[in-house]
Design a protein around this nucleic acid. Structure first.
Ligand SMILES: Nc1ncnc2c1ncn2[C@@H]1O[C@H](COP(=O)(O)OP(=O)(O)OP(=O)(O)O)[C@@H](O)[C@H]1O
Length: 728
DNA sequence: AGGCCCGTATGGCCC
DNA sequence: ATACGGGCCT
């Protein structure tokens, strides 16, 4: 029997409750995840078969950790649990039931980039100019509609308000048609198709409804409409469902998460029992008080009590910095001090930020200062071009209808199949209503392609056929290795031998060893399974709390995690809260929740830092410190910066330029020829001051330039006469 | 077909 | 700063 001794009485009640639907609402660090873990172990103990339990987590990483924990509690039978993210578990069901769908078992999973590329191709095909309609906005919109379960037809009938909407409806419709022809699903489809499947096919619906005797959901506050619908469809008559969440930690509304799921739960399951956990085991009293003082600025929230027996702890440290480099050096210094004074390990620290772009400077400084670190997120490994290209080969080998992948590799490595050829083949495919892959077979019928090129296409098709055949016989690892060999990719990057191409080479080799490892660990695995894991993998899987390095990640990625010491960096207006002119009150509240999530990751100590100036889009921007810093109750925060993390503050752009003119050589246009001047050149004029060249007009003696000087001052000057000095 | 250069945009969080 | 797409030249 699983011992519930390590739970408090309320946690225990929640674990032991087996009467029907239950909702656990509780604040950060109150042991929600722990309750879920024990509850699953407890249910198995009580007689529920592991394979009859459906447990949904927010990330794959959370799932595998929970599974490990349950294995420790009840042994290896835990491996039969249906535990994972919504996306991965329903993808699994879709593959099993693909026979009942208009998809075959080997369907591809399109990530955001693939979707965008499909949107672009669709728009091109429909002659919708990307000038009038931004493809990425369209992709967003389509995904939003899908997340809210709005079909093209419904959208057309009820929601269109503009000419652009009409175009979007057209693209949406065509997109759905194409993705189906490609035998592919995007992330949203992984949730929508099961709903469709269950609706159309009551037998299959009943099968799963019967199969899953108990459903448990972690991070319920961030589920979307489709996920809610799926739960409702699958829950059995006794309503054996347990969801846990914290409305104050809802931070994914931008991808369709809908808090009303949580607010309406008690209405939809009218026998639902609600449990509240009020004791926080994670953080110090100070951290709780500080984070609470921030979150209470949000109007709408479920009121919750949260207290802790933990120590008072240290005050939140406020780090004031001159710029982002200074910030990185301050953080470095504090990490070194903490390690020196309190014998902490590198893995005790997490540096969090609002946007991935902010990791760059931290990375540079940590490298220089010899602080070992791991960046989670950013340009993820499987999103790198060279890696995606190779994965695209595997996807085509698994699913020849996957046109987005086929287009990616058609001319990689270069084999003389250019844009024009691809356009002609695509046109042929559409005309004859066949796939692009089949068109390659019949390329000799595409008469507007030159014979030499036709041969290239045919050669490529033969190569693919060979690997499609081999894919049954070779392991995923062997297949990839031999493919990379034959394509000469390694040689290609070696020969180019630029810094970038060598980095690419590294990535290809890393991919190869990752695939080989995967093959060894899962000897009988199908290419499909591997590809699915890759599509749904996240960088978070790399996180290893036992490894001696500082962890860098976005606050979003840090959800559900905990670290002894947490830095919340870049706390400046416009960055955290991130905002733009479209920002709303609601998005401000979500930013605040995000900040709350960041602070509450800490067990012992939180630092918040802000920089007076920071590079953004190649320009220095000055920003006030975040309102969230000011919302932290003053008796829980103290400044820890006396002096600067490093010497030299950033000077304003103006200062830099003036200094430059005083100290550095410049070209005087009255003497030198004008060949140095070009659009974008920075220039100095005695009377007008600093400026930037917008246009160079004419040549020779009459050559003129148009310059934007400071203060929105536009001038046209004759180069011959104007006393212009130029900066290189 | 492919390479190069220029202009322009750059809203970010993730399964 | 940087990356990407479009247009132009070879
Ligand atoms: N009864 C308990 N006794 C001791 N430690 C506990 C207890 N309950 C939870 N903890 C510890 O408190 C910490 C937070 O627990 P957990 O991650 O389950 O909280 P949570 O509510 O899911 O947090 P969050 O919502 O912030 O992600 C963990 O380190 C966990 O081990």
């Amino acid at each position: 029997m699983v011992s519930l001794k390590s739970l408090n009485s309320e946690q225990k009640k929640a674990v032991e409750y087996d009467g029907g639907a239950s909702l656990i609402v509780a604040g950060a660090g109150s042991g929600k995840t722990r309750v879920l873990t024990y509850k699953i172990a407890y249910l198995i103990d009580k007689g529920y078969a592991p394979e009859s339990i459906l447990a949904l987590t927010f990330t794959n990483k959370a799932a595998s950790e929970m599974k490990e924990r349950i294995k420790e509690l009840i042994g290896t039978k835990a491996q039969y649990l249906w535990m994972g993210t919504f996306h991965s578990l329903f993808a699994k069901i879709l593959r099993i039931e693909s026979g009942a769908l208009d998809f075959s078992v080997n369907f591809s999973i399109y990530d955001t980039e693939d979707s965008l590329s499909l949107v672009q191709n669709t728009m091109a095909e429909m002659n919708i100019s990307t000038e009038t309609v931004n493809p990425n906005a369209v992709r967003h919109r389509i995904s939003f509609l899908k997340n809210h379960m709005i079909t093209p037809a419904v959208f057309r009938k009820k929601m269109m308000t503009s000419f652009i909407d009409e175009k979007i409806a057209d693209v949406y419709e065509r997109y759905q048609q194409r993705i189906q022809e490609h035998n592919a699903m995007d992330f949203d489809d992984l949730l929508l198709k099961p709903i469709e499947l269950f609706r159309k096919n009551p037998k299959i619906h009943q099968k799963y409804k019967k199969k899953f005797q108990y459903i448990l959901v972690d991070e319920f506050q961030d589920t979307n409409k489709a996920q809610y619908e799926l739960l409702k469809m699958l829950v059995n008559k006794e309503e054996k469902i347990c969801v846990v969440g914290d409305d104050a930690q809802s931070i994914y509304s931008w991808r369709g998460a809908d808090l009303t799921n949580m607010l309406n739960f008690e209405k939809d399951y009218n026998n639902a029992k609600t449990f509240r956990l009020e004791q926080n085991y994670r953080s110090t009293k100070t951290i709780l008080a500080a984070s609470d003082s921030v979150i209470k600025n949000n109007k709408d929230q479920i009121s919750k009590t949260l207290w802790t027996d933990n120590q008072e702890g240290e005050l939140v440290g406020l780090i004031k910095c001159s710029d982002e480099k200074d910030e990185a050096y301050h953080i470095t210094r504090i990490i070194k001090d903490e390690i020196h004074n309190y014998k902490r390990g590198m893995n005790d620290f997490a540096v969090l930020y609002r946007t991935n772009a902010q990791s760059r400077v931290l990375e540079d400084v940590f490298r220089r200062e010899k602080i070992p670190y791991l960046i989670i997120g950013g340009v993820e490994f499987y999103k790198r071009k060279e890696v995606k290209d190779i994965v695209a080969y595997l996807r085509v080998i698994a699913n020849q209808n996957d046109e987005e992948s086929l287009l990616r590799i058609m001319n990689f490595p270069q084999r003389g199949i250019g844009m024009t050829t691809i356009k002609r083949m695509t046109a042929f495919a559409r005309r004859h209503e066949i796939t692009l892959f089949d068109t390659m077979q019949r390329v000799f019928e595409v008469i507007d392609i030159k014979e030499r090129i036709q041969k290239n296409v045919k050669g490529f098709r033969i190569l693919l056929d060979k690997y499609i055949m081999l894919s049954d016989r070779l392991s995923v690892g062997e297949l990839t290795r031999s493919l990379i060999d034959e394509l000469g990719i390694i040689k290609l990057f070696k020969e180019e031998s630029s810094y970038e191409s060598l980095a690419r080479l590294d990535n290809v080799q890393e991919l190869l060893s990752a695939i080989t490892d995967y093959s060894t660990e899962h000897p009988n695995v199908k290419l499909n399974d591997y590809l699915q894991d890759v599509s749904l993998a996240s960088d978070l899987d790399l996180l290893d709390e036992t490894k001696q390095h500082v962890n860098l990640m976005t606050v979003h990625s840090a959800k559900g995690l905990e670290f002894p010491i947490v830095f919340v960096s870049g706390c400046e207006e416009d960055i955290f809260p991130l905002s733009n002119r479209f920002s709303t009150d609601a998005s401000m509240d979500e930013e605040r929740r995000l900040f709350y999530v960041g602070m509450t990751r800490a067990k012992e100590k939180v630092f918040v830092s802000h920089a007076r100036s920071r590079y953004r889009f190649g320009e220095v921007a000055y920003q006030n410190r975040s309102r969230f810093i000011d919302e932290i109750s003053s008796d829980t925060i103290t400044e820890v910066t006396s002096g600067s993390g490093r010497k030299a503050n950033r000077k304003s752009k103006k200062e830099i330029y003036y200094e430059y003119f005083e100290n550095v050589d410049y070209v005087d246009f009255t003497q030198d020829k004008s060949k140095h001047i070009k659009v974008g050149s920075r220039v100095m004029h005695d009377k007008f001051g600093l400026g930037k060249v917008l246009q160079v007009i004419g040549a020779g003696d009459t050559q003129k330039v148009s310059v934007a000087f400071e203060g929105n001052n536009l001038k046209q000057l004759m180069l011959k006469f104007a006393k212009l000095k130029i900066l290189n």
